[in-house]
C-alpha cells in the first residue's frame, strides 16, 4: 500500500493476530472496523486504537453488512476457525465485491482449493515451517568448512 493513502479495512476476529493488526493499521492512519463475537476480545486493542468495534458473528451476512463491507478496501479474516475465515473471505469477495481479501488458515491441506476460488490465504503453519527450515539450512551452510 502506498504510504499516505488511508484505507478502510475490516478485520474479523480480534485475537492475538487480529488485535495486533488492528492496532498497527489504526496507528498507520487507516480506518479500521474490528468484528468479534466476544466483547472481551476488544481488550486487546490499545488505548490509541481509533477504529470501530462490532460485536457479532461475521458468518452472518447481516453482521458484515452492518460493518459496511460493501465499502471496504480490504478484509482480513482472522478468527480462530479456519472454516469461518474461509466462508467470511468468500462472502466478502463474491457477495460484496471487496477487492482485497485474505483468510488466515492453519491447516495447509485446506488451503489449496481456495487459491482456485480467488481467495488469498495466509497459513501460519506453512510460514513458520519454512522459516524453521531456512534457519536450519542457514546454520548448516555456515558450519560448512
Amino acid at each position: 500500500m502506498p504510504r499516505k493513502k488511508s484505507y478502510f479495512i475490516i478485520i474479523v476476529g480480534c485475537g492475538r493476530l487480529g488485535g495486533f493488526l488492528a492496532n498497527r493499521l489504526s496507528r498507520g492512519g487507516h480506518s479500521i472496523v474490528v468484528i468479534d463475537n466476544k466483547m472481551a476480545a476488544f481488550d486487546k486493542l490499545s488505548s490509541d486504537f481509533s477504529g470501530f468495534k462490532i460485536e457479532g458473528d461475521a458468518t452472518e451476512a447481516a453482521v458484515l453488512e452492518n460493518a459496511r463491507v460493501d465499502k471496504a478496501d480490504a478484509l482480513i479474516a482472522a478468527t480462530r476457525e479456519d472454516n469461518a475465515n474461509l466462508m467470511i473471505a468468500q462472502v466478502a469477495r463474491k457477495v460484496f465485491g471487496v477487492s482485497k481479501v485474505v483468510a488466515r488458515v492453519f491447516d495447509p491441506s485446506r488451503e489449496e482449493i481456495y487459491q482456485d476460488l480467488g481467495i488469498d490465504t495466509i497459513c501460519p503453519t506453512t510460514i513458520a515451517t519454512e522459516e524453521f527450515i531456512r534457519y536450519l539450512a542457514d546454520g548448516e551452510e555456515q558450519n560448512e568448512p
Partner: peptide, 16 residues
C-alpha cells in the same frame, strides 16, 4: 450445526 463447516465440506467435496 455450523454453516461455515458445511460450506467448506461441500467445497472440498466438489473441488478436491
Amino acid at each position: 450445526h455450523h454453516d461455515q463447516d458445511n460450506l467448506v465440506i461441500c467445497q472440498l467435496g466438489v473441488r478436491k
